[in-house]
Write a protein that binds this DNA or RNA. Structure first.
Lengths: 173, 173
DNA sequence: TATTGTTATACTCTATAACTATA
DNA sequence: TATAGTTATAGAGTATAACAATA
């Protein structure tokens, strides 16, 4: 019941394939993070700040491709739980310098293994080298500013994506 | 001012990379579809039905990884604009058989080229063979049922993803 | 009993504009 | 004037439970 369907024009739409692939990972991510009272966005932000202490909110938000305005409630939720602290920057008193507290670090440490395990399980259909290739191609895709849509009136990219260092040797194919 | 950031543990989270890559494509998709008064989900559904006439809603929803309940308003919006028609199935009077109207077909035909052009522009940082590899890996990832999360109580996959035929020769690496 | 489609509801993420305080 | 962070609000997608009609 229910033969296979054809994608037709959708085959050539990367947005479609990316969403199809993201959906199950997002579900797995959400369930794994929920065990630690964290939304995916909250775990992501906490982990990013842990690895990059002392950054401004807007730097962090841009790196994650999240609007600054949407970043505020994420930070607030984490701060109110004592998982991170904000300090007015001395150099620029408009901005905050953010760090993860010991409690926050402990939570990231505790949550990371099961979250990665769930991700690995979902990705297990791909071999190790296929996973490496996929990561490499995805990173290449989203780290390039040309990927971003253009504002029709100004011709500017809608928001700049800060380049982010990948620890691995991604581009030595 | 804005050195590069490190991803740390996020590097190994496919859900993270997929979301990062999806975000700009989703924006581009949304803007391109909006020129035809269509949300991305609506264009996707319309294109899928055009290529697979006469299917039941639940088949289509499962193929797109959309909950049946969330599929209803998408179908209703398209039907109310005269872009598709539903008919009670004779074999199973619980279900509907769905087809795209001539008006709907014309809209898909008109919208497809600019939507694909926007996708191609966003993907242009990858070479043709890299794009082919990426598509292949993404399809392999989401077409496998093992990718889906498991229901903790029953041990069942949360929802079955119907296998979908890709017209291209994806698996002849 | 199970499935198809539906309704209702809540949650997560995203987009946009306007405001404040600092620069 | 411009930027960092904030507030408010709307939109889009997703998840869950329960229901009627039909199998």
């Amino acid at each position: 019941m229910g033969d296979q369907l054809k994608f037709g024009a959708l085959n050539n739409l990367f947005g479609f394939h990316l969403r199809q692939a993201y959906t199950p990972f997002g579900q797995a991510y959400r369930e794994a993070a929920a065990n630690f009272e964290l939304k995916p966005s909250q775990y992501t932000v906490l982990a990013l700040i842990k690895h990059n202490p002392g950054r401004r909110q807007s730097e962090l938000a841009e790196a994650l491709n999240i609007e600054r305005s949407n970043f505020v409630p994420i930070i607030e939720a984490l701060e109110s739980r004592g998982l991170l602290i904000r300090e007015k920057s001395r150099e620029d008193r408009r901005s905050y310098s953010i760090e993860v507290t010991p409690k926050g670090k402990a939570l990231v440490t505790k949550a990371t293994a099961p979250i990665l395990a769930e991700s690995d399980r979902a990705a297990a259909v791909l071999s190790g080298s296929e996973q490496e290739t996929l990561r490499k191609l995805l990173y290449k895709l989203y780290s390039d500013k040309k990927t971003r849509p253009v504002n029709a009136s100004t011709g500017e990219r809608l928001s700049e994506l800060r380049y982010i260092v990948i620890e691995y040797n991604y581009f030595t194919t």
